[in-house]
């Protein structure tokens, strides 16, 4: 464990908590893409199957359980409890266009051709594009609530911090995982324009408005 990965995990946990609080407190999931939340639930389910097979540490196990439970709780809140506030008119990204390529790529490019490893690889590829429905929704509505942009900033920062973690592990532990690194770079790049808008607007107290 290193400080970059710890900060990354905490940023990830913060994002998930911000989102749950936003939906629970405002009793509304307006401005949130349910499709992205479904993709995240799939990402954690397919990535953390090793909870059943290998024990790495209490921290690792607890965080995986938290991420799985929180992602399903979010999907439940959006599609069941606060379903009336779900913006299905704007949340129209076709997630099959993300799921199928990620699965095909995972079958073609992986570390070893076993069920667990292919599913882990699938979850890595899927996570890198899982935020696209959310960014698509924000671009369609042209704006995002401040709390939603804080959620996105924390979520984007988590994988950006993981990039630093991978640099650290390469130089200090002589360890690297090319599949995770390439997908992590793609994932972070997708946030770039949001990061720019967040830093230039939201941090100055303005609302996140995308140029129409």
């Amino acid at each position: 464990m290193n400080i970059f990965r710890l900060l990354g995990d905490l940023s990830h946990l913060l994002a998930i908590i911000i989102l749950l609080l936003k939906i629970w407190k405002t009793r509304s999931c307006a401005g949130i893409s349910g499709k992205s939340q479904i993709l995240f639930a799939i990402v954690y389910t397919t990535r953390y199957l090793d909870l059943l097979t290998t024990y790495i540490s209490a921290y690792n196990t607890v965080m995986k359980l938290v991420f799985i439970v929180a992602s399903y709780a979010t999907v439940y809140l959006m599609y069941v409890k606060f379903k009336a506030t779900y913006d299905h008119n704007h949340d129209t990204f076709r997630i099959e266009f993300l799921l199928v390529p990620a699965l095909i790529l995972a079958l073609l490019i992986n570390h070893e051709f076993t069920v667990l490893e292919v599913l882990w690889t699938f979850s890595i590829y899927l996570e890198s594009v899982a935020i696209l429905p959310q960014l698509f929704l924000v671009s369609k509505t042209g704006e995002a609530e401040s709390i939603t942009s804080h959620y996105l900033f924390a979520l984007g920062s988590y994988r950006a911090l993981y990039l630093l973690n991978w640099v650290y592990r390469y130089f200090v532990e002589d360890h690297y995982e090319l599949i995770a690194i390439v997908a992590g770079v793609v994932q972070t790049i997708l946030y770039c324009d949001f990061f720019y808008l967040y830093i230039t607007k939201v941090l100055k107290g303005k609302k996140l408005q995308l140029p129409a």
Partner: peptide, 10 residues
């Protein structure tokens, strides 16, 4: 060393 199938990251 390329890490194989024991993924220790979240």
């Amino acid at each position: 060393t390329q890490n194989q199938s024991s993924h220790d990251e979240l």
